[in-house]
């Protein structure tokens, strides 16, 4: 009996260092079922049969951290943002809660449909843009830095309200032109290494590149707590890092290119669950 336990522990330790179990299922806190693998959305059916969350490509140890909110280091930021949600800031004497009330009621499903068209502004808006629009125009407060810790935390707070709901980003109608632009960027080879997003994340997901296990580059888990830099990371920060790593001049977080790319990449994950804040390498 004792020997068996030791063997099991040894096996578990070994598994932590081994490559991800791509057949594992993600259930958070024992009851919140997360779809981490499903059929590809129709617009992607020529390229992929199945879409998979980055969670599937991580080691058992990293996967486990996301299965319990007490073990998920990204959840600390959610608590901080919940406080910020109720804190009055800016010239107009308002907090987020002044207009939106209880975040757990008003923000359900919001993260799942962003980026989306804003009719009044006549533009595609990311969640970060909408948060800053509220801060500047409704609250008279200073905008958060686009990839700042405050922004990542607020995005995490909003993501949690949609956890388990399917990503469902619209790709037609008024966003169609931006979506097409994002798609073009996804397949464009940049930099001296001459690499597109697709080269790694469509053609080579599942393969190792040195010690990194290439994922599909899905963003349903953002903001993502990365063990590599021990903080919550926004989507545009990650995009910037990826483009930089092709030895290219990268694009600006919050700029038109990354907004378009975010819309397109988000739509490649239509059907996966919102996971943020996720835990990644």
């Amino acid at each position: 009996m004792k020997l068996k336990t030791i063997t099991a522990i040894a096996a578990a330790l070994f598994a932590t260092t081994a490559i991800a179990d791509e057949d594992a299922e993600l259930v958070i806190n024992g009851d919140l079922e997360i779809v981490t693998k499903t059929a590809a959305p129709a617009h992607l059916s020529d390229a992929l049969d199945e879409i998979m969350s980055g969670w599937r490509f991580r080691s058992d140890g990293t996967q486990a951290m996301q299965m319990d909110d007490f073990d998920n280091p990204g959840m600390a930021a959610v608590d901080g943002a919940a406080e910020a949600w109720a804190t009055v800031e800016g010239e107009k004497g308002k907090s987020c809660a002044s207009c939106h009330g209880d975040v757990a009621e008003s923000m359900v499903g919001v993260r799942a449909v962003y980026p989306k068209w804003n009719e009044k502004a006549g533009e595609v808006r990311t969640l970060a843009m909408q948060i800053n629009d509220c801060r500047e125009n409704q609250m008279g407060a200073k905008a958060y830095g686009y990839t700042s810790g405050d922004m990542a935390a607020m995005e995490a707070l909003l993501s949690v309200q949609s956890r388990g709901m399917p990503v469902n980003v619209a790709i037609d109608g008024p966003v169609a032109a931006t979506w097409e632009k994002g798609k073009e960027l996804y397949y464009t080879r940049f930099g001296q290494l001459d690499l597109s997003c697709a080269n790694c994340h469509e053609d080579n997901y599942g393969n190792m590149i040195r010690a990194d296990h290439l994922s599909q580059g899905q963003i349903n888990g953002f903001p993502a707590y990365r063990l590599k830099n021990t903080k919550l990371n926004t989507v545009h920060d990650r995009f910037k890092g990826c483009v930089r790593d092709t030895r290219a001049e990268t694009f600006k977080p919050g700029g038109a290119e990354f907004i378009a790319l975010e819309l397109y990449v988000a739509s490649r994950g239509n059907g996966l669950s919102v996971e943020g804040p996720s835990v990644r390498n």
């Binding site: 080879r189 940049f190 930099g191 001296q192 483009v243 930089r244 030895r247 290219a248 001049e249 990268t250």
Partner: peptide
């Protein structure tokens, strides 16, 4: 190349 950078600086 498209948008060649200064090594891995992103610039």
């Amino acid at each position: 190349f498209t948008r060649p950078g200064n090594a891995y600086t992103g610039k």
